[in-house]
Design a protein around this nucleic acid. Structure first.
Lengths: 161, 161
DNA sequence: TTTGGTGCAAACCGTTTGCATCGCT
DNA sequence: AGCGATGCAAACGGTTTGCACCAAA
């Protein structure tokens, strides 16, 4: 779904936009962006930090945070709503939808043409300016279903903020 | 949209379910549930605490937390995905959809018959068991739009986790 | 009466911030 | 060379937990 050319191209575009905005295109920033681009999960800051550290061992967690928010402000990545305390980031710019596990909080992207064609109702204008629509399906993911049958008498306690 | 009978009825049902499960129906628990039921916003724990305190002045914030999670485990309320650090709670059991402000994180319920009729695609079975579908529209709410034009040269910085 | 629930205060964990140093441009 | 970016460590804010007391069943 993602190929290296796409990724290099988007990194080049980031460098271009940063320079244009008078923001320095440091190695840390580019590697943080690359990590989110390459990630198939929806990584939180800690996870991004773990991965980037392998390439840039001296990077600090707070630089990762600062960079992620910078990328978000520049609309290169977005944040995902979660039921957990950790903020999760996403560089998937294709139209997609979410399957959300109410047990473990996993968010799995899925694609669906019918949902892609849904239009934003006019009534929304009363609330604000809309720019994106996505369908969210809540349920329990396969992994959690497996755990629940294993545990049998399960003390139901989900992940919390 | 909500009337007092509905609320009393749901509280009675809670008492019934608690007793059945061998959990004590304490005043604190009932008042926390009443507060979420009566709330038109999607209150966070702190907000629930503020309101409940007026009726039960000795209640503590951690009891509010414990009760909210208990009610969630019993499926009397649900938690809402947010981009902010605070967990927000919801007792709205009607089928509804969300308008989410990407600036301030506000979540506004809206109703739409067409969206209500959307069906869960079969492909979802590969991911897990689905039980609810909702449409999420992302945009910028009127309040934030107003602020943005006021501030003019705005140092774009949203609410963060 | 008994056992689970509550309130308190301290711990926890994800995230942010102040400051001195470092390295793009 | 200059100034924004970084790394460190300490602060912060929402949430959780251990413990002794209290009250619903």
């Amino acid at each position: 779904m993602k190929n290296d050319n796409d990724i290099e191209q988007r990194i080049q575009y980031l460098i271009h936009c940063l320079r244009e905005a008078g923001i320095k295109a440091t190695n840390q920033r580019l590697e943080v962006f690359r990590t989110v681009l390459e990630s198939e999960e929806h990584p939180d800051a800690e996870r991004v930090y773990q991965i980037v550290s392998q390439r840039v061992p001296t990077i600090s967690l707070d630089t990762v945070y600062r960079t992620l928010w910078l990328l978000k402000d520049l609309d290169f990545i977005s944040t995902i709503e979660t039921t957990q305390s950790k903020t999760r980031f996403d560089a998937n710019i294709d139209t997609h939808h979410h399957f959300v596990c109410s047990e473990c909080g996993a968010i799995i992207d899925f694609y669906n043409d019918k949902f892609d064609k849904l239009e934003i109702p006019i009534e929304i204008e009363e609330l604000g300016t809309a720019n994106r629509l996505l369908v969210e399906i809540k349920g329990i993911c396969n992994k959690c279903l497996a755990n629940m049958t294993n545990d049998q008498i399960k003390t139901k306690k989900g992940e919390r903020k």
